[in-house]
Simulated scan of single mutants.
Amino acid sequence: MIDKSCIGVALFGAGRIGNIHAANLVRHPRAQLRYVVDVHQPSAEALAGKHGAKVATVEQVLADPAIGAVVIGSSTDTHADLIMRAAAAGKAIFCEKPVDLDVQRARFCAEAVRKAGVICMIGFQRRFDPTFAALKQRLDAGEIGTPEVLIVTSRDPAPPPAAYIAHSGGVFKDMLIHDFDIFRWILGGEAVSVHATGGCPNMPDVAAAGDISHAAVTLRTRDGALCQINTSRRAAYGYDQRFEVLGSKGLLQAGNVRPTEVVVWNDNVISSDKPEAFFLERYRSAYALEIEHFFDAVVNGTSVRTTIEDGIKALELAEVATQSWREGRAIECSI
C-alpha cells in the first residue's frame, strides 16, 4: 500500500536527466528520494550523497515496501526490463522516452502495466512546457478554428558522439519521437501516411554510424490535416524548438525560449539572446511540471497525460518513418 502522505521514490539513472529528476524529486512535498541506482557506482554515490539518498540495487529497490514509485532515467536499453519488473512489484512508474527501441517489446511492457494496474507515465516533457501547453489550450478553445497544418522545427545544437548514435535507434527514435508525440497531441488524430527523407550533409561520422543528421517528415491524418517536421542534429545558434499551427481561422505560434528577453537596439543591429543551450535548460520548467503531474496522479489516483500507450504510438511512428526513409517512399499506415 503506497503511503500517499510521503511517497518513497527510487531513481534509476544518475546521468544528466537523472540529476534533473533528482533535483525535482527532492523539492516535491510528497516525494522522498530514498535510493539511486546506476551501473556506474561513482555517479550513483555522488547523486545519492548530494540529496541524502542511498545507493541500492534494482532488487533492493523493488523489494522495499517503502518505495511507492520509481523514476526511470537510465539508458534506453534498460527501460523495458525496469518497467516490467517495477509493475510486477506494484510500483508507480515514471519512465523517460522511449519505452524501448522495439515496438513489440514496448507492447509487452504496456500489457505488464495493464495487468499490474499501476500508473505508468512516459516522459514526453514537451507537453508540459508552459508555452507549448498554452498554445494547446488556446487551440482547444477554438481560437484558430480547426487545425489544418502543423509545422515543427526541432534542431539540436550539436550531434552526440558517434558511439552514442550507433546504439540510439536512429534519429527518428532518438530525436523525432518527441516530435511525433507533439503531432499526436496537437492535431489530436492518428497518422494514415508517413513520408520521411533525410541525409548527412557535412557529417560523415553520423553517416558512418548508419544514421542521418537531417530529416524531413510529412504526416497526414485521416481527416486530411498535415504535419511537417524538420530536424537537424546541428544548429550552430543553439537548441531550436518551435512549432506553429495553421487553422481555418488563423495561426498559433510557439517560439524558442531564451535565457533573457532583453533586446538590444543600436545603429548597427537589433539583437537578442540566442535560444537556450540545450534540452536541460530549454525544458527546465517542463521537467519540474511533469514530475509534479506524476505525483498528483499517484496521490489522487487520476490518469496521467502521457501514458505508455502514447509512448508506443510515438515509437510506431518512428518505426514507420525509419522504414519510409530507408525505402524512399511514403508509407500508408493506421497509427
Rank of each mutant, 00 (worst) to 15 (best):
D223T: 08
V262C: 04
Y283R: 12
G301C: 00
D310W: 11
L315D: 11
R284Q: 09
R284V: 06
T221Q: 07
N256I: 03
N266A: 09
C333N: 00
L226C: 03
L246D: 03
C227K: 06
Q228V: 15
T221F: 01
K313A: 15
G250F: 10
L289E: 15
I270W: 02
P259V: 11
T307V: 07
I229L: 10
Y237E: 15
F294Q: 03
R220G: 02
D240L: 14
W265I: 14
I312T: 02
S271Q: 09
A235N: 11
I335A: 02
T322F: 10
A225C: 08
R305C: 13
T260K: 00
C333K: 02
R220H: 07
G301A: 03
F243K: 11
F278Y: 05
S232H: 04
N300A: 12
T302F: 04
S248E: 00
E244G: 15
S232K: 06
L317D: 14
T260I: 03
Q241E: 05
I335T: 00
R233V: 08
S272W: 01
R242C: 13
D267Y: 09
G311D: 05
S303F: 11
I270V: 12
G301F: 00
F279G: 08
E332V: 09
I331P: 06
A254S: 11
Q323E: 09
N256A: 04
E319S: 09
L226D: 04
P275T: 02
R220K: 05
A314Y: 06
R329E: 05
V257T: 14
Q228R: 15
A288F: 02
V298K: 11
N300P: 06
Q241I: 13
C227Q: 12
T306Q: 12
L246V: 15
Y287H: 10
N230G: 06
A297H: 09
C227W: 09
G250H: 15
I331D: 05
T231D: 13
C333P: 06
I308S: 06
R258T: 10
D267V: 12
V299K: 07
F295G: 01
G238M: 04
A297W: 09
T306H: 11
N256D: 05
A321Y: 05
V269G: 12
I308Y: 07
V320N: 13
S271I: 02
S232Q: 06
Y237I: 08
G311V: 00
V299N: 00
T307R: 11
G238L: 01
R220M: 04
R222L: 11
R305S: 10
G301Y: 00
F295Q: 03
A321K: 07
A225I: 13
E281D: 14
G250A: 07
C333Q: 03
D240G: 00
A321G: 01
A236M: 10
A297N: 05
A318M: 03
P275G: 03
D223V: 02
D240N: 07
A288C: 06
F294W: 06
A288E: 01
E281R: 01
R258A: 06
R326Q: 09
I229K: 02
W265L: 15
S285R: 13
T306I: 14
T221N: 04
L246T: 11
L252H: 09
A277H: 07
G247L: 03
L251P: 10
A330E: 12
V320K: 11
A254E: 01
K274Y: 14
R284H: 04
Y237D: 14
V269W: 10
F278P: 01
R305T: 15
H293T: 14
